[in-house]
Amino acid sequence: MSRLRGLHFEPLWWSLFSAGGVCFAVFVPAVALVFGVLVPLGVIEVSFVELVGWYQGIWGLIFTGAVLCLPAFHAAHRIRHGLHDLKLGGGSTSAFICYGVAAVFSFTALWAWFTF
């Protein structure tokens, strides 16, 4: 049997969606809490220089993956299946657009980290 017979991309999108779901549930709220509430309110203080230092190291890469890339693919998958549910698409064109936007977004975020 050909090793490609019957294969399709759905498991790949679903894996990214699942991983992104965990990130959305765990890391995104934490980041929103810290940088959206606690820092502006002055509850905790972070220096910009320190942040830049972290971002340049492995923490920056983890941040990029867990808070930007994977949630982007999670959102793309949701939107694509939402379009299908609303009978507005969901086929290969919407897949191309949704995952394409997530991919471009992720590449940009990774590129920003590499070149920072």
Partner: peptide, 10 residues
């Protein structure tokens, strides 16, 4: 599907 892809068998 991963196993099929790498090993060529179900």
């Amino acid at each position: 599907m991963l196993i099929q892809l790498f090993k060529g068998s179900q």
